[in-house]
Simulated scan of single mutants.
Amino acid sequence: MSQMNNSQARVVDPVLTSVAQGYKNNAFVGGALFPTVAVSSRGGKIIQFGKEGFQLYATGRSPGANTKRITFGYEGKPYVLESHSLEGMLPIETLQEAQNVPGIDMSSTTISSVQDIFALRLEKQQADAARNQAAYGAGNKMTLSGASQWNDPDSDPVGDVETAKEAIRQKTGKRPNVGVIGAAVFAVLKQHPKIIERTKYTGRDVPTKELLASFFGLDNLEVGDAVFSDDAGGFSDVWGKDMVLAYTKTGTVKDRGEPSYGYTYQLAGYPLVEEPYFERNPKSWVFPVTDEVAPVVAGADAGYLIINAAA
């Protein structure tokens, strides 16, 4: 008899696992750039994209000649899923108090609290990957400073975004459909006189992210409001003062011909919740939750980074 693997050895709670898998915190926006793709193994090759789809080929064939062959996409750098585990604790006193109030399911609430922690960690990883200047070629990033930053009333946010869009189009044949901006950038754009000038015809007093998406020609514009605390107790914005534009196909990784910017690879069936158990000493129920996940940039040419968009 073969030895059980880690997944087979676990005793999974199917109900609470469905709670964990269905969880979504609307405060986090990294999935707009890195849609989740289920994978069957904890390691493999990132599907990246070449230039084959943009080349002109001599497709003619004479009688008896071999038919030319071409492949799309290729396996790039290896990826390794990261394993993350936490145990949520539910004291019996809290459970007993909650049972007196209809509609409160403390088991699900405990799992959601753990998922909040997982989601913030993943959001930070996605933001770090998207804001990594080294990931982009020289033509796929710009750094703003002084009068070019969007705090300055004479700056040109729409013009800067158009430059970014054209850079992506020239390298992929696709215009970006998604943008993510830091909260500080959103605050500046809402007050920018050139944006307000356009807004006055919409009946809105303040530009919304939906209006800004329309101005920039994007299907979706997300604002990264999430913050994280450092070891000293200070708080920082996860998405900083940058803007990331990307063409992201929210399909599956099998769409090899599409130059999609990024994915979040996640082991199929995860996150999972093992069967809860009771610990007598702290008099608490314990809910172990595990996830196997990693965000990857699959095609940096399909993205553009505007650095220090806000001062």
Rank of each mutant, 00 (worst) to 15 (best):
L90G: 02
P63F: 10
F54N: 10
L95Y: 07
Y74P: 01
S62G: 14
V39T: 07
V39R: 10
G88I: 04
G76T: 07
G88A: 10
G44C: 01
T71A: 13
K68D: 13
F49Y: 07
R42N: 07
I46F: 02
N66H: 11
V80T: 13
T71W: 08
K77M: 10
L86K: 08
M89W: 04
T67F: 12
M89G: 03
P63S: 13
G64N: 05
L81Y: 03
M89Q: 08
L86M: 12
G50E: 03
A38H: 07
K51E: 11
K68N: 11
Q55P: 00
T59H: 03
E97A: 12
E87D: 09
L56I: 11
E75V: 00
P91C: 05
A38Y: 08
P63L: 11
V39Q: 08
E82R: 14
Q55W: 01
L90Y: 02
L86A: 08
M89F: 03
I70N: 08
K68M: 12
L56P: 02
G43A: 14
P63E: 12
L90I: 02
L86E: 12
K68H: 08
V39K: 09
Y57R: 15
E87M: 04
K77N: 12
L95A: 13
Q48H: 05
T59M: 07
Y74K: 12
L81D: 04
I46W: 01
I46D: 00
T94A: 13
F49P: 00
F72T: 11
G44Y: 00
H84M: 12
L81H: 02
V80C: 02
P91R: 00
I92T: 10
G43W: 05
F54L: 14
L86F: 06
S83Y: 03
E93R: 06
L95F: 08
T71C: 06
G43T: 10
Q55T: 05
I46N: 00
K77H: 07
T71Q: 14
A58Q: 13
Y57E: 09
E82M: 09
H84Y: 07
I47Q: 13
Q96L: 04
Y79P: 06
F54V: 03
Q96D: 02
Q48D: 05
G76F: 02
A65G: 12
I70K: 14
F54K: 12
E82L: 10
I70Y: 09
G73T: 07
P78D: 00
E52V: 08
S83R: 15
T59K: 10
Y79G: 03
N66D: 14
G88M: 03
P63Y: 12
G53N: 08
E97R: 14
E93H: 04
Q48L: 02
S41W: 01
A38N: 11
Q55S: 08
L56Q: 12
P63R: 15
I47K: 13
G88P: 01
F54M: 15
L90D: 03
S83F: 02
Q48V: 12
G76I: 06
F49V: 14
L95W: 04
Q55G: 02
Q55I: 06
Y74S: 10
G60M: 07
E75W: 03
E82N: 11
K51N: 14
M89S: 10
T59V: 12
F49M: 06
